[in-house]
């Protein structure tokens, strides 16, 4: 049994700096076998958490990217029609022999329907991500990414999978998960997720990290960047987040910027450096101006 501190430690070994809330959530999800629903602004490491967990725990990552119009054929399972057809063609002679024994049509139909389950067996089932993670021999990590992009129907479909970790297939019956996967759902909040789904999950909100944690994240990813500079750039970005930008810079932007600065071998944060690299931080034309203005005001 891993403790909360243990969760923090092994996440750190996977290159992910977690705060208390994240560690607690992961800890609970591991032991209570409940999915975690993560919300937060884009780029704060929601998907990153799942990836770090999968590598740290050595759970195979099964990822399901949601989009508008995703359905059970894409998420749970599908029948392989082509294969089914091919098999009936190839087995035609055997079928003929098998059915020729029967006296009349009625008996033939009966004989055939007795073998129906052959064609609707696991041989012809295509496993899609959710079913695949349920049937995996090893405990896996199921990442349902950007659930807010899917429609209500798909959300309703997930309810059964997430509360009981089982999939009902009309032809086969209920298939239960061999090992309940550690499930992580992420959402950017572009649409309200229904209460029914929320109820089945632990709810974790990841916001922008505190100063120290963000510096630590930068330091872990780019150890060669000097600490002084990391500190100053994180401070600058925190100020930029308060500017009311159209797309405020997130942790992923911080990391991109840190990478750019370390490639450029910058040692000081000056307005010129910011002006040259502003495209990494700000992603809208109006934002560019605001950020450069802030740099002149703060750094000169």
């Amino acid at each position: 049994m891993i403790s909360e501190q243990g969760v923090k430690d092994f996440l750190q070994s996977g290159g992910y700096i977690a705060d208390d809330a994240i560690a607690t959530a992961v800890f609970l999800a591991l032991h209570m076998e409940k999915p975690i629903l993560i919300e937060g602004p884009p780029g704060v490491g929601k998907t990153g958490l799942a990836k770090a967990l999968s590598s740290a725990l050595d759970f195979p990552l099964v990822r399901l990217q949601c989009y508008e119009g995703i359905d059970e054929g894409k998420a749970l399972y599908d029948w392989e029609y082509g294969k089914q057809l091919l098999y009936t063609q190839l087995l035609r002679t055997q079928l003929d022999n098998y059915l020729s024994v029967s006296a009349d049509l009625r008996e033939a139909v009966e004989r055939l329907s007795a073998e129906e389950s052959l064609f609707f067996s696991k041989n012809f089932l295509v496993q899609r991500p959710i079913l695949r993670s349920f049937l995996s021999e090893k405990r896996s990590l199921l990442l349902i990414d950007e659930i807010d992009r899917s429609d209500d129907e798909f959300e309703a479909l997930l309810l059964e999978c997430l509360s009981d970790f089982q999939v009902s297939i009309p032809e086969l019956g209920v298939i239960e998960a061999k090992r309940k996967p550690l499930t992580i759902l992420t959402s950017n909040g572009t649409r309200m997720i229904s209460d029914a789904l929320r109820r089945r999950c632990l709810y974790l909100y990841i916001g922008y990290p505190e100063l120290e944690r963000e510096v630590a994240i930068v330091r872990v990813k780019f150890p060669d960047l000097c600490e002084e500079l990391a500190h100053r750039m994180v401070e600058f970005l925190r100020k930029a987040r308060e500017l009311n930008l159209r797309k405020p810079p997130s942790v992923s932007e911080t990391l991109d910027w840190a990478q750019v600065l370390s490639i450029l071998k910058a040692t000081q944060l000056t307005p010129e450096v910011v002006a040259n690299t502003v495209g990494v931080i700000a992603k809208h034309q109006t934002d560019l101006q605001k950020v450069t203005d802030l740099a002149i005001q703060e750094l000169s």
């Binding site: 909360e4 208390d20 809330a21 607690t24 959530a25 629903l37 109820r199 632990l202 709810y203 974790l204």
Partner: peptide, 16 residues
Amino acid sequence: RRSSRQLLRLTLVKNV
């Protein structure tokens, strides 16, 4: 207090 609050919040509150 802190960790108990976190636990309760994780399980009871589902909206920021």
